[in-house]
Design a protein around this nucleic acid. Structure first.
Length: 690
DNA sequence: AGCTTGAGTATTTTT
DNA sequence: TACTCAAGCT
């Protein structure tokens, strides 16, 4: 059936019997193998709806299903359950959540929302006992940090005190405030019927603890396939184990050498321990079909420097012919680097390599800013993945918040955000009114607003009421109608608040047309939150989809990708490894794997760039104004520590000389009381946070 | 007094 | 874009 597979791949594809772990090194045809296995299972008689595919993103899921369909000819998409752990959790909860007493109308907070709600809770505590804490530390945990701490506690089942000690030492003094903040956070989520990303997984675990529901879930699937297993958390591993019934077989795929999500509490202990925990057979794929021997030599050299070598040591063998050696391009500064990258891209383009076969990879989203300007100036079209994302733009969050109020008038966080769009309403008034709305007092009344805001407030209420009527599940109601209605109110607000509102309104247009394609407003909001558009313009759809364009991506978002020519920029110490990750050895090793992931994306040619003079933005770390007072503060950066002699021996040097110094039917009745399993999980979480 | 608003400064990676 | 601080409004 699959003539083009290698022997190892075929062994993995046709494996029959127990659980299976496929250790697939970079470029060894992991996607091909997984898609072929899916096709094989369906061809051998497994109904597609009895297969669950857990992937790292919507794109990966779609790609796998599409390729499997090509192989087996059966309809797989739509039938087979495919998506991230969070998306599958959402789907399971919509089907079975009622059995636990969960209100199926819940909305989902993304990470930014969760951080905002935590900040709101802490502010409330401050306001409440303002004088109790006389000596408040000048520097407190940022709200994003609070979200990370909270998340790490629940996804690794680790008590707050231990998480603080091991990972957030500088916040240890705030333990009491954090504990109180987390308690308030949890009760507010419950009151407003919202869940965060972690809750999706926790509620899934509650489903598995409830005997009457768990059985049905365990009987639902014959095969569960998990991709990128090296980047799963302890909680996710537990879910997988609990998910598997007697008749279920698990296929996990991953590469411990490409683990890059430690900051999100992922642990390679999962993939390392998988064979023992599940009693699984192991197939190792070591034949790399993607890259030239020259590219692999550099990638292998990067990994060779690792102080904690992987538990599944692999030697990647290239099955391809020779190509150019990777190059290290030393640049004077960032501007020079941008020019060099553009020059190289256009040069390859002139030699017949399309832009879509090239990618520029960066450690952090904002490090591509200068390059983006240069690309625009030279009219090189590009699409950016990762970094600042669509849903994080303020005006998009504004629209999403208004829409959440249409769906759920008790959404405290949405009120808090939307009320502050009214003139004369700041955090303090918004907080009071939002709390009242969440407590069930109904929407804020105009007479409770400052006089200047009363008219605008009334107009907002009117828009919400109209939109609610338009969103009602009456026959033929398209979810774009309520969106258009609230925009009558929101657009002028956006125009007034932001100087150049044109592109922002364009973003809102994209959201509006995306809503038109959704079945209803509630699902539109939830699915957008769980599977956000990966690139700017993903929502807008085809306009430039057919045009040739370059890919610009963070290394994290480039996982699984492949391009003929890959440019990796900003390879200086401080960027890669990032200054913020150099605290402990594990952090540094993860940064090294990041470079490995970047390098192994390249098929034909790998270009590494290092801007050796770095401009410091004013005022960082007590930098002293230089003599001459040009105001142009800069320092000399060292080459990334990962580009050691072993690696440098595999690359050609260009540019400046290097200074050596330098669902089915849901018919479970909804009980009036929450299920004990839910309370059980809730208590476990409470104990962790105490 | 309490609150909003504007200026100035610093910014990892993502479900 | 988010946070902090300080000025100015009600």
């Amino acid at each position: 059936m699959f003539p083009e597979l290698t022997n190892d791949q075929r062994r993995a594809v046709t494996h029959d019997g127990g659980h299976l772990l496929i250790v697939a090194g970079a470029g060894t045809g992991k996607t091909t193998t997984l898609a072929a296995r899916l096709a094989h299972l369906v061809a051998a008689g497994t109904p597609p709806e009895r297969v669950c595919l857990l992937t790292f993103g919507r794109r990966a899921a779609g790609e796998l299903v599409r390729r499997a369909e090509q192989l087996c000819g059966d309809r797989v998409s739509g039938a087979c359950w495919a998506g991230t752990f969070h998306a599958i959790a959402n789907r399971l909860l919509r089907v079975h959540g009622g059995g636990l007493g969960l209100d199926p109308g819940f909305t989902v907070l993304d990470q930014a929302d969760a951080a905002d709600l935590l900040a709101l809770c802490r502010a409330e505590l401050d306001a409440h006992d303002g004088d109790a804490v006389g000596a408040r530390p000048t520097r407190r945990a940022r709200k994003e940090t609070m979200a990370s701490i909270y998340s790490r506690c629940v996804t690794t089942a680790t008590p707050l005190s231990v998480v603080l000690r091991d990972h957030f030492g500088w916040c240890a003094g705030e333990r009491d405030v954090l504990r109180a903040t987390f308690a308030a956070y949890r009760s507010r989520k419950r009151a407003a019927n919202v869940v965060d990303y972690d809750d999706l997984l926790l509620h899934w675990s509650a489903l598995l603890r409830a005997p009457e529901v768990a059985g049905a879930i365990r009987r639902r699937f014959d095969h569960v396939l998990v991709d990128e297993y090296q980047d799963t958390s302890p909680l996710q591993a537990d879910l997988l184990e609990g998910f598997v019934g007697d008749g279920t077989r698990v296929t996990a795929v991953g590469d411990d050498g490409q683990a890059i999500y430690g900051f999100r509490a992922a642990t390679i202990a999962n993939i390392v321990g998988f064979p023992a925990r599940f009693g699984a057979e192991v197939v190792v794929l070591e034949d790399n079909h993607r890259s030239t021997p020259e590219v692999l030599a550099t990638a292998n050299a990067v990994l060779a420097g690792a102080t904690t070598p992987g538990r599944f040591p692999k030697v990647l063998r290239s099955s391809r012919g020779s190509g150019p050696r990777p190059a290290l391009v030393a640049c004077a500064d960032e501007g020079h680097q941008s020019a060099e990258v553009c020059r190289a891209i256009l040069d390859r383009h002139d030699r017949g390599i399309r832009l879509r076969d090239q990618a520029v990879l960066v450690r952090t989203g904002h490090h591509s800013q200068l390059l983006e300007l240069e690309l625009v100036a030279r009219r090189i079209p590009f699409v950016k993945y990762g970094g600042l994302r669509f849903l994080e733009a303020a005006h998009v969050k504004d629209l999403m918040a208004v829409l959440r109020l249409v769906e759920n008038p008790r959404d405290e966080l949405a009120w808090f955000r939307v009320l502050q769009l009214l003139d004369g309403v700041g955090p303090a008034i918004a907080r009071r009114l939002a709390a009242a709305a969440a407590a069930g007092d109904g929407p804020p009344r105009p007479e409770h607003l400052p006089e200047v805001a009363a008219t605008a407030g009334a107009a907002l209420q009117e828009a919400l009421t109209d939109a609610r009527a338009l969103a009602a599940p009456a026959a033929g109601a398209r979810p774009s109608l309520p969106v258009e209605r609230v925009r009558v109110w929101l657009d002028p607000v956006v125009e007034r608040r932001y100087p150049a509102a044109g592109p922002r309104l364009g973003d809102l247009d994209a959201l509006t047309s995306a809503a038109a394609a959704a079945p209803d407003l509630g699902r539109f909001l939830v699915e957008l939150t769980i599977d956000p558009p990966a690139a700017t313009g993903d929502l807008a759809g085809p306009p430039h989809r057919d045009d040739d364009h370059l890919t610009l991506s963070t290394i994290h978002s480039a996982k699984g990708g492949e391009w003929r020519v890959v440019h990796v920029i900003a390879l200086v110490d401080g960027n890669l490894p990032s200054d913020l990750s150099t605290g402990d050895a594990d952090g540094i090793e993860e940064e090294r794997r990041l470079l490995y992931v970047a390098a192994t994306r390249a098929a034909d040619e790998l270009l590494l760039y290092a801007p050796l003079r770095q401009h410091h933005h004013r005022g960082t770390r007590g930098h002293r104004a230089g003599a001459g007072g040009t105001g142009d503060a800069h320092g000399y950066a060292a080459l990334s520590r990962f580009l050691d002699d072993t690696v440098l021996a595999t690359v050609e040097r260009r540019g400046m000389p290097l200074d050596p110094a330098t669902v089915g039917g849901a018919d479970v009745r909804m009980p009036s009381e929450p299920h004990p399993a839910l309370a059980e999980v809730d208590e476990l979480v409470a104990a962790l946070l105490d």
